[in-house]
């Protein structure tokens, strides 16, 4: 049993304490936006924000997450309105989209502590792996998100999220 706060909701997981947070989120809490890519904290696809810090959820056990406050991609904004989300879409810095949720969380945590990062700050903070090759656009998108956050540029509203539909269901 582990009690923690997920997206501002208190949650109790009836799982073994050695279960990585990633699988508790995905398979018990049904928060599937957080992706499995490597299981060893290298790729960043499973990045969530824990007490303000972006970290991989695949190498943190439920026991270690006890009492902490976790924000997943589902809890970042209700309507895709976070500046990072707006900027990634408007720069088309996404291809297959599998690394994107983790990348959004990494960039959001970076901007939360440094609203005006340099390219070097971005390169140091964003160690997420993207195999499609969107890196050049990611730097531009995070810079743009910073400008939106600082009020220097207008945001780009995205279509309101619809309930995710799965073919066949």
């Amino acid at each position: 049993m582990a009690q923690l706060t997920v997206n501002n909701q208190p949650m109790e997981f009836r799982l073994e304490p050695d279960t990585p947070l990633l699988w508790a989120l995905r398979d018990a809490a049904n928060l599937t936006g957080t992706k499995y890519g490597c299981g060893s904290g290298e790729c960043g696809a499973c990045t969530v924000i824990i007490d303000g810090q972006a970290m991989p959820s695949c190498t943190l056990s439920l026991g270690e997450a006890e009492g902490r406050s976790v924000t997943t991609i589902e809890g970042l904004s209700p309507d895709r309105s976070h500046p990072v989300q707006q900027a990634l879409v408007s720069e088309q810095a996404i291809q297959c989209g599998f690394c994107t949720p983790g990348l959004v969380m990494t960039a959001a945590a970076l901007l939360a502590r440094n609203a005006n990062p340099t390219d070097a700050d971005i390169a140091a903070a964003v160690t997420n792996i993207c195999r499609c090759g969107t890196y050049p656009r990611i730097t531009q998108a995070i810079q743009r998100a910073g400008r939106i956050l600082r009020g220097e540029e207008r945001g780009v509203p995205l279509p309101a999220p619809q309930t995710a539909t799965t073919p066949g269901l």
Binding site: G33, G97, P101, P161
Partner: peptide, 21 residues
């Protein structure tokens, strides 16, 4: 603009591992 990007940016896009039955 690409049609698939808005749902890919908020985790709602369903990949094979996100199907729940």
């Amino acid at each position: 603009p690409r049609l698939d990007l808005p749902p890919k940016v908020d985790g709602s896009f369903v990949f094979a591992g996100d199907v729940r039955l």
